[in-house]
Nucleic acid binder design. Structure first.
Length: 189
DNA sequence: CGGCTGATTGCCT
DNA sequence: GGCAATCAGCCGA
């Protein structure tokens, strides 16, 4: 699961004429992970997570935002990787119309911004991202070298803050700025 | 520039 | 009924 997350850095998400190269993702480990939507078992909302890998899990949150996950791991295991941020590499004109006033660096800088930029909503829940014929699919991109991959705690979760299951590309300006639980400096205790 | 908060729907207990 | 894998805008410094 963590290896899949790491491999997704640099991959390119394609939806219609817009494409985004991923710079930040976050792993969720299915039923035994208290921060996972699958923790309390299968429900109508999260049922895609319990299906085969390679499919998209789109959910609605905070009354106004969509976020997208890639289902990974074994069928039924319900592991998933939250796609958090990336750089727009195609369709900049389309995105500029969708996000008037935003600067390119911020187009997909955060999970909800990423879905807005790509035009993703619940209609894409469950699509097979491994097929180039799907409305949304994922292509391999230029590999990110190991020395540029950084790991840290997940964002916005109230439980299991200790597991470093978020990974991102070091020094990439499109990585999301929201890191509420990451102390910038470690004071000696 | 960094920190805080209101917005607003749907899901789960 | 409570709260969420967030974001934009506003505040003060």
């Amino acid at each position: 699961m963590l290896d899949v997350a790491r491999e997704l850095l640099g991959a390119v998400v394609v939806c219609a004429d817009v494409a985004v190269r991923l710079s930040e993702v976050e792993a969720y480990a299915g039923g035994r992970d208290p921060a996972s939507h699958a923790f309390r078992g299968k429900t109508p909302r999260n049922e895609v997570m319990f299906g085969p890998p390679g499919h998209l899990y789109v959910y609605f949150t905070y009354g106004m935002h969509f976020c997208m996950n890639l289902v990974v791991g074994r069928d039924g295991h319900a592991s998933a990787v939250l796609l958090r941020a990336g750089a727009v590499v195609a369709g900049v004109e389309t995105v500029a119309q969708r996000r008037p006033g935003a600067v390119p660096r911020d187009f997909a800088r955060g999970p909800a911004r990423l879905t807005t930029t790509l035009g993703v909503d619940r209609r894409l829940n469950g699509v097979d991202v491994t097929s180039a014929r799907s409305a949304l699919h994922v292509r391999r991109g230029a590999a990110v070298p190991d020395e540029l991959v950084r790991w840290g705690p997940r964002v916005g979760v109230s439980t299991a803050q200790e597991v470093p299951w978020r990974c991102w590309v070091d020094a990439d300006p499109t990585v999301s700025p929201y890191r509420p639980h990451v102390p910038k400096k470690r004071r000696h205790v």
